[in-house]
Design a protein around this nucleic acid. Structure first.
Lengths: 116, 116
DNA sequence: TCCATATTTCAGTATTTATCGAAATATGGA
DNA sequence: TCCATATTTCGATAAATACTGAAATATGGA
């Protein structure tokens, strides 16, 4: 996530009403995640549209997916999210002491997927 | 910056190679900021293109501008940037204790503009 | 006033993106 | 195997965005 292309792709993925809502929902769900169909119902878009949006988020590395029986569960990738925010604030104010903090949100993605 | 529309606009503004580079440059410049023409030269795009991109960033509230003689100096709006990041991580993991930190980067915008 | 510098607006074109119904694919269970 | 559920892919259309040269606007100084 440390190269401009990936960051642009991630920001572009989030720069859309429905995808932003999906991502925030997944961030709030945490490691549990949510199935594609549930997301479609919750956000209020047809399954095919949700699939399109989820593909963009996944392509951008912002969400991961796992199959659970017939459903595909999507989970926010917190590591990617933190890297994204770190990129935006990188070397803030030329490195002067200005109180910047690298946001560390939630568990790492490996933990979120229950890799334990 | 706390409503989805504004956030989408801000993310869309950053989701473009040149604008992302401009914003990061301004973040690194801090309160000093940089003139539109200098930005165009530094990024390597024609002045008219830079103007287009700066307008998008300004419209999204990510940068502010001030005139200094014949030049227009652009400065990153750190307050907006922090609000943006806060929006993405809002209620992370359902509010469970997961180590989330609201990133506080650099000075507030008022301070950055030298309102003292 | 006149000129040089700095930036923005305009116009036209090419590219990308969002949308969603219908059809295709994949899984689980009887 | 056959059916129901869950998701994705396809196809076509509408809308938004990026790009940049030329012209317009604004400022500062002689």
């Amino acid at each position: 996530m440390t190269n401009p292309d990936n960051v642009v792709r991630a920001l572009g993925a989030l720069a859309q009403e429905h995808r932003l809502a999906v991502f925030r929902l997944l961030v709030q769900e945490g490691a549990q995640g949510m199935a594609a169909g549930d997301l479609a119902a919750r956000i209020g878009v047809p399954p095919s549209s949700m699939s399109f949006h989820l593909a963009q988020l996944a392509n951008a590395g912002l969400v991961t997916q796992r199959r659970q029986s017939r459903s595909i569960i999507y989970t926010a990738d917190f590591t990617a999210m933190n890297a994204l925010m770190g990129y935006l604030t990188d070397n803030c104010c030329g490195g002067a002491d200005c109180g910047i903090e690298a946001a560390a949100c939630c568990a790492t993605d490996e933990e979120a997927r229950g890799a334990a």
